[in-house]
Amino acid sequence: HAATELTPEQAAALKPYDRIVITGRFNAIGDAVSAVSRRADEEGAASFYVVDTSEFGNSGNWRVVADVYKA
């Protein structure tokens, strides 16, 4: 099962156990969220919340930071 994305309210009520950072070329924010979901799932997380997204220069590469939560 894939890790689910939390709302800001849900994330605020929970304590993350880790923070992950992924970088890559994403065509849309949805693609980045899917990549975070896969990584969170690999780490055994039940859910995640994207904290920050930023573009690296003009290369089209993105850096996505997310907190991950157990259950």
Rank of each mutant, 00 (worst) to 15 (best):
H1K: 09
H1A: 09
A2N: 13
A2D: 07
A2H: 15
A2P: 11
A3C: 06
A3M: 07
A3D: 01
A3V: 12
T4H: 13
T4K: 14
E5D: 02
E5C: 13
E5M: 13
L6M: 05
L6R: 01
P8N: 08
P8H: 12
P8S: 13
P8V: 09
E9R: 09
E9H: 09
E9Q: 11
E9F: 09
Q10D: 06
Q10A: 08
Q10S: 06
Q10R: 07
A11N: 02
A11P: 02
A11D: 02
A12F: 06
A12I: 09
A13F: 12
A13G: 12
A13H: 13
A13N: 12
A13W: 09
L14N: 08
K15C: 14
K15M: 11
K15G: 03
K15Q: 12
K15V: 14
P16L: 00
P16H: 03
P16G: 02
Y17M: 04
Y17C: 10
Y17R: 01
D18A: 15
D18N: 12
R19W: 06
R19N: 00
R19S: 04
R19D: 00
I20G: 00
I20A: 00
V21F: 07
V21N: 01
V21P: 00
I22R: 00
I22L: 08
I22P: 00
I22N: 00
T23G: 03
T23R: 06
T23W: 09
T23F: 13
T23L: 11
G24R: 01
G24A: 06
G24F: 10
G24Q: 02
R25C: 09
R25P: 09
R25N: 11
R25S: 10
R25F: 14
F26K: 02
F26D: 00
F26G: 03
N27C: 05
N27V: 10
N27M: 12
I29V: 11
G30H: 13
G30E: 15
G30L: 10
G30V: 12
D31R: 02
D31M: 07
D31G: 05
D31I: 10
A32D: 02
A32M: 14
V33K: 12
V33S: 03
V33F: 10
V33C: 07
V33N: 04
V33Q: 05
S34H: 14
S34W: 07
S34Y: 09
A35C: 09
A35W: 04
A35F: 05
A35L: 06
A35D: 03
V36Y: 00
V36M: 13
S37D: 02
S37P: 03
S37L: 08
S37Y: 03
S37M: 11
S37W: 04
R38H: 08
R38C: 08
R38Q: 11
R38G: 04
R39D: 02
R39L: 11
R39W: 11
A40C: 07
A40G: 02
A40K: 01
A40S: 03
D41A: 15
E42I: 10
E42G: 06
E42H: 09
E42C: 12
E42Q: 12
E42V: 08
E43N: 08
E43R: 12
E43W: 13
G44N: 05
G44V: 01
A45G: 05
A45H: 06
A45T: 02
A46L: 10
A46P: 05
A46I: 10
A46E: 13
A46F: 11
S47Q: 08
S47I: 04
F48S: 01
Y49F: 14
Y49I: 09
Y49P: 02
V50W: 06
V50E: 02
V50N: 01
V51N: 02
V51R: 04
V51T: 05
V51F: 04
V51L: 06
D52G: 09
T53H: 11
T53R: 07
T53E: 05
T53C: 15
T53D: 02
T53Q: 08
S54P: 03
S54N: 10
S54I: 15
S54W: 12
S54A: 12
S54E: 14
E55L: 10
E55C: 12
F56C: 11
F56W: 10
G57Q: 08
N58K: 10
N58I: 11
N58A: 13
N58G: 13
S59E: 14
S59Y: 07
S59N: 13
G60C: 07
G60K: 05
G60D: 07
N61W: 15
N61A: 10
N61Q: 14
W62P: 01
W62M: 10
W62E: 03
R63I: 14
V64R: 00
V64L: 06
V64N: 01
V64G: 00
V65A: 04
A66F: 15
A66E: 02
A66P: 00
D67Y: 13
D67A: 05
V68A: 01
V68T: 02
V68Q: 00
Y69D: 01
Y69G: 01
Y69S: 03
K70H: 13
K70R: 13
K70S: 08
K70Q: 09
K70T: 08
K70W: 09
K70V: 08
A71C: 12
A71M: 12
A71D: 14
